[in-house]
């Protein structure tokens, strides 16, 4: 374990060093990431000028779920997207070789392979934007813990799904569509569960599990839990995690290590 932590820190350091050699424009990434949030907040404000609430939700609540979904998205980009894009490429051009030859736990290191610092900044800002709308006096310590747990659970779900699709690269070769499709995810993720018509609800819980990404966290913060949904979220996450381990192991057997 100690070794893994040392390695993770080292990977983060090396990625930062790489970033610094290029002096990549932190400001630029930051502006483009934040513009999206501000445009959305502004349009939300505009709508709420005319209506007091939408489907039982007031402005503050929709604002919070928006920030949660943004946070989920940045976390997803940071730990899953960047790294799996890199891995999918490495599977195709054979550069995965050197990772497989090292006596370390590649799966534990995966979230840190291409740790992208430019996404830390929007994360911090988004946490700030989230906190200014939360009513701290009404959220107890258990709620905080639950919220954090289920937020991480939501990120883990996204992580496992990306991993499963990346494993398919072992068979089908280049496989970028998962990364394109997942770009559309935040739009669905930030919709409160009640807004989904009953017939598609099941679909968006079990097949394209966008509802379990941030809705549970949101419910916990507002003390309005749907315990069945929470249970489903944990179970789906666990199942997807095991499937992802399986597809990875099985995929490796088919690795052809292109020259």
């Amino acid at each position: 374990m100690r070794k893994n932590i040392d390695l993770i820190i080292q990977y983060i350091k090396l990625n930062l060093q790489t970033e610094l050699t290029y002096r990549s424009n932190l400001i630029f990434t930051f502006i483009s990431a934040m513009t999206y949030v501000f445009v959305f907040v502004l349009s939300l404000k505009f709508v709420f000028n005319y209506v007091p609430q939408i489907g039982g939700y007031n402005y503050d609540q929709l604002y919070v779920i928006l920030m949660l979904s943004q946070l989920w998205w940045y976390a997803n980009v940071l730990v899953a997207r960047k790294n799996f894009q890199y891995i999918a490429k490495a599977i195709n051009n054979g550069t995965l070789d050197y990772h497989l030859l090292k006596p370390y736990s590649f799966r534990i290191l995966t979230p840190f392979l291409k740790f992208d610092f430019r996404h830390l900044m929007p994360i911090i800002i988004t946490v700030f934007l989230l906190f200014i709308k939360l009513d701290f006096s009404s959220i107890g310590i258990l709620q905080w813990l639950g919220a954090i747990l289920f937020f991480m659970n939501g990120v883990l779900v996204a992580y496992s799904i990306t991993s499963i699709f990346t494993s398919f690269s072992f068979w089908v070769g280049r496989n970028n569509s998962i990364f394109d499709i997942s770009l559309e995810m935040p739009d669905l993720v930030r919709i409160p569960i009640e807004f989904f018509p009953f017939i598609v609800k099941g679909f968006f819980i079990f097949f394209v599990p966008v509802i379990i990404m941030v809705n549970p966290t949101f419910q916990i913060l507002y003390n309005n839990m749907d315990y069945i949904l929470l249970a489903e979220a944990l179970i789906i996450s666990l199942v997807l995690f095991f499937i992802s381990e399986f597809t990875w192991k099985y995929g490796l057997k088919n690795y052809t290590s292109a020259n």
Binding site: D97, L100, L101, L252, K253, N254, Y255, T256, S257
Partner: peptide
Amino acid sequence: KMLSGLLH
């Protein structure tokens, strides 16, 4: 690659 464990 088979000797080093990369290929099955």
